[in-house]
Design a protein around this nucleic acid. Structure first.
Lengths: 192, 192
DNA sequence: TCCGTTGTCTAGCGATGCTAGGATCGAATC
DNA sequence: GATTCGATCCTAGCATCGCTAGACAACGGA
């Protein structure tokens, strides 16, 4: 029994190593640099080992995405928990969200841009993704305004943040004016 | 002289063929299916011919992006030109923008998601891209509100639309609620 | 001590973007 | 009209990609 448990532990540990290495490599050199060969070399195993843990590269991206979604949810909650006032919380949320996207571009891509083979907007959506949306909803639902469904409002606000994040990082928007953009967005969208 | 001119015409014609074929293939089967081999086969030339027109696949994507940007600008102007009232124009703009993204997903990706090797937010940004932004600015600048820079407002509104477009198409948002999302966005962001 | 399972690696497949080098064709010159 | 010469295009190939088959070794249980 104990032998099996040890092997399971080692296997789980190796899986964490794969995900962490993929993430680090992606963050450092971009997802294009995350090839199965390079990844295998970094973890000091051969390529086929990766396929004993994941179906393919997509699933590895998906694993990074889930890990990142949990961190994003935590970051948002941490940023809003210490702030008084609904409107101020929303501002803090927006800044925390954009800050996360800026500091973890590869992870952000894994969550929202790349195909990690994850389901969205269904009941079989992985828990971390639903929880990340829930974290947004907690603060944004307060400022949806009368007669506006909190979920709908959260979707719209989230989409705006997502647009700012991706367009900025893709070089479509200059990062200098990030602050006034957030200010404008919160001023107009948040009621109360 | 006439011989050279004919050759130039034929060359330009072939270049258009390459771009049109790449676009059609991308729209039909996704950008992943647009390989240099398949593209070469479709235009009935060998692969190296592509490289006598473009530096590589990136530049082909860029060419599709420029063509698409011009069409997007035209679509936005067409949708807004026949509408009375600033607010109504903005609603029409938003719907036209999202409609374009939905009906030309591959082209939209080429413009805003993929790396087409294009410069943005600089003075050396290609004209069609600057003009597409200008087309948005024409209608959005009217509803920026007092003391708000029209360019900044346009950026924020555009980012919101971009977020809705990409999240919807990536399966992150359900398409059913598209209409109320737009309504909410226009209601809150547009002043006047 | 032997067997069988489990785990890992080497080697290779088809496909990718891109390029070198030779063949071919047509226009200009004698 | 024959001949050169440059432009144009294609065949063939390189390195790399994601992924997999099959050989091999290591180790627990009989």
């Amino acid at each position: 029994m104990s032998v099996q448990e040890r092997k399971q532990r080692e296997r789980a540990e190796r899986e964490r190593l794969i995900v962490a290495t993929a993430r680090e490599l992606a963050e450092r050199q971009g997802w294009d640099a995350v090839t199965t060969r390079r990844l295998a070399e970094r973890i000091e195993y051969s390529q086929p080992v990766l396929y004993s843990h994941f179906r393919g590269k997509r699933e590895i991206i998906g694993a990074v995405a889930l890990e990142g979604a949990a961190e994003l949810a935590a970051a948002v909650r941490a940023a809003t928990s210490t702030v008084d006032g609904p409107r101020e919380r929303v501002t803090a949320l927006a800044l925390a969200y954009l800050d996360f996207a800026e500091r973890n571009p590869a992870v952000y891509d894994a969550i929202f841009q790349l195909d990690g083979g994850l389901a969205f907007a269904h009941e079989d959506t992985p828990e971390p993704l639903k929880d990340a949306f829930a974290a947004l909803l907690e603060s944004l639902g307060e400022v949806a305004g009368d007669g506006v469904h909190p979920g709908l409002f959260t979707e719209v606000f989230w989409a705006s943040l997502h647009g700012l994040a991706t367009l900025t990082r893709a070089g479509r928007l200059l990062p200098e004016d990030a602050a006034p953009r957030v200010e404008l967005l919160v001023d107009r969208l948040a009621m109360a």
